[in-house]
Design a protein around this nucleic acid. Sequence first.
DNA 1: ATTACTATATACCGAGTAA
DNA 2: TTTACTCGGTATATAGTAA
Lengths: 224, 224
Amino acid sequence: MEPENDEKFVTALRRIALMGGLHDYVALSSRELGDMLDMSQQSASKRILELLDGKLIERDLGARRQRIRITSKGADMLRKEYIEYQKIFEMKDELVIKGTIVEGMGEGQYYVTQPGYMEQFVEKLGFKPYEGTLNVKLLSTEHHKLDTLRNGRTIDIKGFERNGRTFGDVHCIPASIQNVECAVVLPRRSHYEDVLEVVCKFHLRRTLGLEDGDQIEVRIRLNF
Amino acid sequence: MEPENDEKFVTALRRIALMGGLHDYVALSSRELGDMLDMSQQSASKRILELLDGKLIERDLGARRQRIRITSKGADMLRKEYIEYQKIFEMKDELVIKGTIVEGMGEGQYYVTQPGYMEQFVEKLGFKPYEGTLNVKLLSTEHHKLDTLRNGRTIDIKGFERNGRTFGDVHCIPASIQNVECAVVLPRRSHYEDVLEVVCKFHLRRTLGLEDGDQIEVRIRLNF
DNA sequence: ATTACTATATACCGAGTAA
DNA sequence: TTTACTCGGTATATAGTAA
């Protein structure tokens, strides 16, 4: 039983993040880090080497001062803890995400109407979706909330193959827009998407009178 | 230079908090805690003793299963980290608290007009307060935000004595209500108060046309 | 001033075990 | 079953120091 001691890494990462290391390289000597963490320069230097080894930070070792930034792997580690704290202190069961309506390119309709998905939507979401999706582009300030969603419970729609084409797994969460029940489809993590696709029993654009560019709030139910 | 290793304590506290230990005693054996923290039963037992020693948890050592809850000191430790994560991920510099206008009992006026306070208000807040306060009773869902405020920066007004009566320290934070600049006075922690007193250059009730029972939003500036 | 190696001191963990 | 002691092995920290 090895203790897998993430904690000492996260502590250092948090310090670096508070200096802005999530967004850009920050100049940070081992002595400064040591002071912040209440440890010696030597230990801080070692900690930095460990973080580098674990690909949690990247370093630009200049002649005088090294500059450090947090990798996406390191950011994930921090976010995971943040989400735990949110659970502890917020105990919220809904998350509101703001975004604007954008034009769909028809793929929504193409995917939703695939029988392989449609059957599962009906069974797992409890309604037969309208044959098309509403696309909501998230405001940039809301983007990080996708990670919160991905770390919570989701309704998982299994992928399938059809005519030699692969349709991947889809992860949904129940939601509502202006009190109309619906479900959001989480975008793939890898593509760094910022558009939520919303499936609904009704034609949301018509029902709610929405047009491209309108700003809306999607209320997502976390503990369904 | 002793490393003052809070981190291992916070990690255990977080685990306990996720089980509900902030709100009530939770049954938690040293083996279970050990499993959750990836450590042995022996080490978890030791960790529990350390947490007890540091008054971070309280324990009800029953015959079969011990029950543990987090003390207010332990909760503070967790909240402090939570606030760091909020800083990292939210980068917010204001906090909006909702509440309703309630009747003041005249104590606001009594206190504000004490010269010992008034002089400091003028000096440290930058305005001469109207001789009375607006009392805002927080919605119960907003109560926890007081702790966030208490952990951030405050403008501290020193207490004093006068005619044998003791006037305590007062902690203020700059804020605004409907774009009118003001400052909130944090209620004493010990009394578990849920009423914010708002001091302002103007008579807020008259200026904003507020009446008892009206719901308002107080925008509090965190990084003044 | 840096970073980071080596050697030594300290802290920590867990196996064995008692109550 | 519990909790928690002692003890020995190991991991971690720092002082001294090189580059």
